[in-house]
Amino acid sequence: MGDIINIFIKSAFIENMALSYFLGMCSFLAVSKSVKTALGLGLAVIFVQGLTIPMNWLIDYYLLGENGIFGIDLTFLRFIIFISTIAALVQLVEMVVEKVSPSLYNSLGIFLPLITVNCAILGASLFMITKEYNFAQSVSFGLGGGVGWALAIVAIAGIREKMSYSIIPAPLRGLGMAFILTGIMGIAFMGLMGIDPAAFK
């Protein structure tokens, strides 16, 4: 159990997908103009990541691995299967949310298609493989990674909203400043690297 909490905290803060690996930057920079939309995308990412990582773990273990039902090493199909799972799951989630809760769909819906090509999701799936997590750990890693990413985008959006009142050299306005801010936040998050993950055990 301690192990699972440890992975959650590690993936949310110390190994933050957005600010220490800089994954999912395309949508991160494009959607972080206001806190409200950032929060919407953040929630969508938590949701999708929490679902796809365990799902991909199951697929990798039971279909592609040597211990799976085919009994042969099919790991070369990993990229294709993972991305298809993510795309299919995102579409499924979109349909379900639309049917069940139109209000949630209105706030989340537009971001869902964007998430398919969010590197943070595929990145987390691939990291889960290289880190050799088991199923429970991968659930916690998926959720933690999503929470960390959402936290980062909301924080950056907050700063960017405030920045709109500042005087910035014209060529740096918008995108340029967003890069610098993300870099500085990345350095700030590096401070968390000093935390010994073993302390949470």
């Binding site: 220490s20 690996y21 800089f22 050299p169 060529p171 740096l172 995108l175 340029g176 400043m177 890069f179 610098i180 993300t182 870099g183 500085i184 990345g186 350095i187 590096m190």
Partner: peptide, 14 residues
């Protein structure tokens, strides 16, 4: 360190 890449891209944009 990776934040440096952010700053360099920002400078290129500038």
């Amino acid at each position: 360190l990776s934040p440096a890449a952010m700053f360099i891209v920002a400078i290129i944009i500038w």
